Computed example of a mutant assay.
Amino acid sequence: MGVQWANLYRAVRIHETVFDLLSEEYETARIDEAKSIPTVGIVDFPSLPERKSSPHRFLIVLISTVLSVALTAIYLLSQRSWLEMAECDTRRALVARIKMTMHNGWS
């Protein structure tokens, strides 16, 4: 009976010591957390801008329109040139051969 009591007493003392150590660490962590200065602080609260700076909508629309007109004109001129080209033209035969090679390579 004495041995069992000694083992239980030793286990209780170990648990008490662990509890005391963890309690001290917990209190130290709470104090450190209370002392710590926040790393991010608000210096000045945001407000709405007085005027929009960029991008300027008119400039975007103008550049987009000019580019689309230029690209469409280039496409239409190249298509007309391609359709007016003779069937036996070497450039047209080269493009047809490249298309056939690419088509056979992907299939």
Results as ranks from 00 to 15, higher is better:
89 D>E: 10
18 V>A: 13
46 P>W: 14
63 I>C: 07
54 S>V: 12
92 R>I: 09
60 I>D: 08
99 K>E: 12
92 R>K: 05
4 Q>G: 08
37 I>A: 15
93 A>R: 11
95 V>L: 08
11 A>D: 03
13 R>N: 03
2 G>V: 00
67 L>Y: 09
33 E>W: 07
81 S>W: 06
12 V>C: 06
5 W>S: 05
30 R>T: 10
107 S>W: 10
65 T>N: 06
19 F>Q: 00
106 W>I: 15
69 V>C: 03
100 M>A: 10
66 V>I: 14
3 V>T: 12
60 I>G: 05
64 S>Y: 06
64 S>M: 04
98 I>N: 04
69 V>A: 12
82 W>Y: 14
42 I>W: 06
82 W>C: 05
77 L>W: 01
1 M>T: 03
35 K>P: 02
92 R>G: 00
70 A>M: 07
85 M>E: 13
99 K>I: 15
28 T>F: 09
24 E>Q: 15
36 S>V: 07
9 Y>D: 04
62 L>E: 13
9 Y>P: 01
62 L>M: 07
52 K>T: 03
103 H>Q: 14
96 A>C: 01
34 A>P: 01
76 L>K: 08
80 R>L: 14
57 R>M: 01
15 H>M: 03
96 A>T: 12
37 I>L: 11
94 L>A: 13
75 Y>E: 03
44 D>A: 13
79 Q>A: 09
67 L>C: 07
75 Y>V: 01
42 I>P: 00
58 F>M: 15
